[in-house]
């Protein structure tokens, strides 16, 4: 008896709510609490960045004497910070360096890793387990372990390429390799094995199978990794600072130098920071869906 009444009451309430405005288009209940909390969180996560943008567009004096939230009435707007940061901090050159470092360092590892991932997915061989597990293990190793010996190899005592793009390309290719093999292999394992089998029966070589079948099919995973690797290389401070000479260095290192000389260049710092964020944000928002799909489909279980 009691259950029936409860159910009755429940349906009545639901019916009322559908008629009212308490529901969304898809029929779920509107949740005011989540709306408010999410709005506040989104605000909290965005406000510092908006503050940076506003401050970067204000004169040094204005920025030092009033908070950015007062900019609307306190004024002091200018675009001079941007032109000056390009002149004084050599940002234009650094921006080009950043692109020239990041693009090859993003794409070259994929080429090497894809073949390895292909072997791990579609071939059987002795030591496969051990080798792949070593990849999983190496992903955890902090890259700092490599610096002292590699500075020797790349430095004047060795190959003498420290300071050049080449050194950084090689480093990022090596450091990105384990994750790239891992991501691509996990994705390839979800591809239909029968395709490879029938191609083998038709007499295709492994190189052809990889090139004509697997590489195109693994494109989404490659793009997801490329996005991650690009963000990582562009945003990297440590490797760029150690292995690039001052004229070849990236935006992030320039920004770090601006942070170091706070006193004179406070207004340049905000403009520089915003410049350093423009390209990764563009890449990020263009490829966001792809990246999310790649990460959530088990591609990055890192």
């Amino acid at each position: 008896m009691s259950t029936t009444t409860a159910n009755d009451r429940d349906t009545r309430v639901t019916a009322e709510k559908i008629r009212g405005s308490g529901r969304m288009k898809d029929g779920r209940k509107r949740s005011p609490v989540s709306m408010v909390v999410m709005f506040l969180l989104a605000l909290l996560w965005t406000v510092p960045t908006i503050g940076l943008l506003v401050t970067s567009l204000r004169t040094r004096d204005a920025a030092a004497t009033s908070g950015w939230w007062e900019a609307l009435w306190a004024g002091g707007w200018t675009t001079e910070n941007y032109s000056r940061v390009f002149e004084q901090a050599d940002m234009g050159n650094a921006f080009i360096n950043g692109v020239l470092v990041a693009v090859p360092a993003t794409i070259i590892p994929i080429m090497f890793a894809a073949f390895a991932a292909y072997a791990f997915t579609f071939m059987d061989f002795r030591g496969k387990d051990v080798l792949f597990i070593s990849i999983v293990a190496v992903m955890v190793v902090p890259i700092q372990v490599a610096f002292a010996p590699l500075l020797d190899i790349f430095g004047p005592r060795g190959l003498d390429i420290a300071g050049q793009y080449l050194a950084v390309w090689v480093l990022h290719t090596g450091f990105g390799m384990p994750l790239c093999i891992y991501v691509l292999r996990n994705y390839m394992a979800s591809l239909p094995f029968s395709v490879v089998e029938s191609a083998r029966i038709d007499g295709c070589s492994n190189f052809q199978i990889f090139w004509k079948l697997i590489a195109p099919m693994a494109m989404p995973a490659m793009a997801a990794f490329a996005t991650l690797q690009f963000l990582w290389v562009w945003n990297d401070l440590l490797i760029a600072k150690l292995f690039l000479s001052n004229e070849n260095t990236t935006v992030i290192v320039k920004l770090q130098q601006l942070l170091g000389t706070q006193g004179q260049g406070a207004e340049l710092l905000t403009a520089g920071a915003f410049i350093s964020m423009v390209l990764p944000m563009l890449v990020f928002f263009t490829l966001q869906n792809l990246l999310v799909r790649g990460m959530t489909s088990g591609a990055v279980k890192g």
């Binding site: 960045t49 562009w234 945003n235 920004l255 964020m277 990764p280 944000m281």
Partner: peptide, 18 residues
């Protein structure tokens, strides 16, 4: 959004704004 921001730029943001 902050996922695209480097540690260095994020540091600059928080230092100057917060």
């Amino acid at each position: 959004l902050p996922m695209a921001i480097s540690f260095v730029a994020a540091s600059a943001i928080w230092l100057t704004q917060v």
